[in-house]
Design a protein around this nucleic acid. Structure first.
Length: 553
RNA sequence: GCGCCCAUAGCUUAAUUGGAUAGAGCAUUUGACUACGAAUCAAAAGGCUAGAGGUUCAAGUCCUCUUGGGCGCGCCA
């Protein structure tokens, strides 16, 4: 938490300085990492920001600030130098750097977590929510990886996160699905029936029909909808489990659409009635329209068709009302970018139902395209031509697969080249990181054979860790907290993949330069503690990504 | 036609959300295993951040336009 500590102390200094100048504005000072050739830990841009406000020369401000910083924060900062352009380069005292190690050793797998900061604020994270009409494909895999990792990060930061899968188990698609199984079943009994092109062509439908056929029940007694959904749901749950993703809650759309209360009303009836009564919806051409255009949508939308049937939007409105009704103060929806046109209307719904639209956060991730033998594969559930998540996991492994999905910012589209993923499986960055963990543990095992090692943290002389490599490594360990902060701010877990790769890189540099097990008892003990910290941070980081960290490889 | 997203080294990409000389990995070239794991390290080479304007002390990042790509525009879900 080096950065946080420095920033907090500097803030006090700057506020005091500004008050003396008669300014009460607050500034967002940025602690930058200086360029490589400058021997400093941080660079701060305060002088430029203040100079702009005062309309004076930043160098004069910088000079004054540097003097005050040295005087007021001498317990933390030992050097404050002015760069030509107005940056102030800061060097942090070694004691502050070394303090990080004690914090990590004490807090272990809770290092950087701040339960008091967010105080159990209730978040509902809805993701994957793939239609239960077939197995998950790799696009769902990306959503699953991002959603699950983000949930882990937010939990780490003290939020009370519930992971939910919204199950679209009503509507025409489910009927077609049941019909698909039934036709396959009939074909199995030897009847000559053509399989309709608009039905689900996938192999998995045949498997379900096979199972039903082998049970030898009468065709009229079989509930094809129930049986098909049961098998597909099991497949989905198993696939997710193999991907280290487990949901807290599976929310069925039928609860909203078909379950009636004592007055014979469903939740959708209720919500639409409410909107109509509040004049947020109106009847036109016998259909019920939502006045969503007034709330940021491109146009008004139909909630109930003239044939009396509700649209998907109506049930989704009811679903979101239900979410808020369960006490969640923040809703996060993770959608594939092909649903982006839907964002404005659901936000409008939320606002019209009397909730804060900012409380609904919709994260879009760009689609995954697939390449096989240099050619793009077009995916469609109904045609049955898609690469399933399970296939990819079986090919490249769970850890590499999750890491791969999390390498990129969700705003960028991801091309998944199967050959490349397979070919590079042994060179994948995830192995590079796991290797650090294995190496460290190997040294720790070796160290356990020695009788002279100091274990008590208070008795360790961390000041002995004074090489450039050690200092850089400790600073990087501390940056775990910065990575948490930026991940929370941007609602994106991909910063951790980058962070861990950089950490592994810095560790290897340390490893080459500094031997851990030496004749020097004090130094050996201190360095053993240092790599113990590396193990803790690597494990914490990989755990947030849902990637395992084996002690031996 | 309208809307959303993207464009960074040969390839895959990062950049603490507006900060200093844009970082990595793969591939290429060169060097390093008789001490803790060579799945590693050291070094070289590779960039007008698609293009043109603008805002700013400061732009890969913000604004406008252009080009190229992905996606979406139903009383479907």
């Amino acid at each position: 938490m080096i950065r946080q500590r420095v920033l907090a102390s500097l803030n006090n200094v700057f506020v005091k300085y500004l008050n003396n100048k008669g300014i009460c504005d607050s500034f967002n000072f940025v602690l930058e990492v200086p360029p490589k050739n400058i021997d400093a830990d941080f660079a701060i841009n305060a002088a430029m920001l203040i100079a702009k406000k005062l309309k004076t020369d930043p160098k004069i401000i910088a000079k004054e600030l540097a003097e005050i910083i040295l005087k007021e924060t001498s317990n933390i900062i030992e050097k404050a130098e002015i760069a030509g352009n107005g940056f102030i380069n800061l060097r942090v005292k070694n004691e502050v750097i070394h303090k990080t190690l004690e914090e990590i050793l004490i807090k272990k797998n809770k290092y950087g977590s701040m339960p008091e900061k967010n105080n159990g604020k209730k978040i509902l994270m809805e993701f994957v929510s793939a239609n239960p009409t077939g197995p998950l494909h790799i696009g769902h895999g990306r959503g699953a990886a991002i959603g699950d990792s983000l949930a882990r990060i937010l939990k780490y930061l003290g939020y009370d996160v519930t992971k939910e899968y919204y199950l679209n188990d009503v509507g025409n698609q489910v009927l077609v699905l049941a019909e698909s199984t039934k036709i396959r079943y009939k074909q199995m009994t030897g009847r000559e029936i053509d399989f309709p092109v608009n039905h689900y062509q996938g192999e998995y439908i045949i498997d379900i029909a096979k199972r039903l056929f082998s049970e030898g029940r009468d065709i009229n007694e079989i509930d094809f909808k129930y049986e098909t959904m049961k098998d597909i749901l099991k497949t989905i749950k198993d696939d997710l489990k193999g991907f280290a993703v487990e949901f807290d809650n599976w929310f069925s759309e039928s609860k909203i659409v078909t379950v009636e209360d004592e007055n014979g009303e469903t939740k959708v009836d209720e919500v639409c009635g409410y909107l109509l009564a509040k004049k947020e919806a109106y009847i036109k051409d016998e259909a019920l329209w939502l006045s969503s255009a007034k709330f940021g949508d491109a146009k008004d939308r139909v909630l109930r068709r003239s044939n009396g049937k509700y649209t998907y939007l109506a049930s989704d409105a009811a679903y979101h009302k239900n979410k808020f009704g369960r006490g969640f103060t923040k809703l996060i929806n993770l959608w594939g970018a092909d649903h982006h046109g839907y964002v404005a209307r659901i936000k409008a719904c939320v606002e019209m139902l009397g909730f804060n639209r900012e409380a609904l956060d919709i994260i879009l991730y760009q689609l995954v395209s697939l390449k096989r033998n240099g050619q793009s594969v077009i995916m469609s559930t109904r045609s049955g031509k898609f690469i399933t998540l399970k296939e990819v996991i079986d090919e490249v492994g769970k850890d590499a697969c999750r890491f791969f999905f999390l390498l990129r910012d969700s705003d960028s589209s991801l091309e998944f080249d199967l050959e490349l993923a397979k070919k590079h499986s042994s060179e994948n960055p995830v192995f590079y990181i796991q290797y650090v963990n294995a190496r460290c543990n190997s040294i720790i095992r070796e160290g356990e054979n020695r009788k002279d090692i100091i274990f008590n943290i208070e008795a360790i002389d961390f000041a002995l860790l004074d090489t450039k490599e050690e200092r850089n490594l400790i600073k990087k360990l501390s940056a775990f907290c910065d990575t948490l902060a930026i991940s929370e701010k941007t609602m994106s877990p991909h910063h951790f993949t980058t962070y861990l790769i950089e950490l592994a890189d810095i560790y290897h540099k340390f490893y080459e330069k500094c031997r851990v097990l030496t004749d020097n008892k004090s130094l050996t003990s201190a360095r053993l503690k240092l790599i113990e910290c590396v193990v803790i941070i690597i494990k914490n980081g990989l755990d947030l990504l849902g990637v395992s960290a084996p002690d031996k490889m």
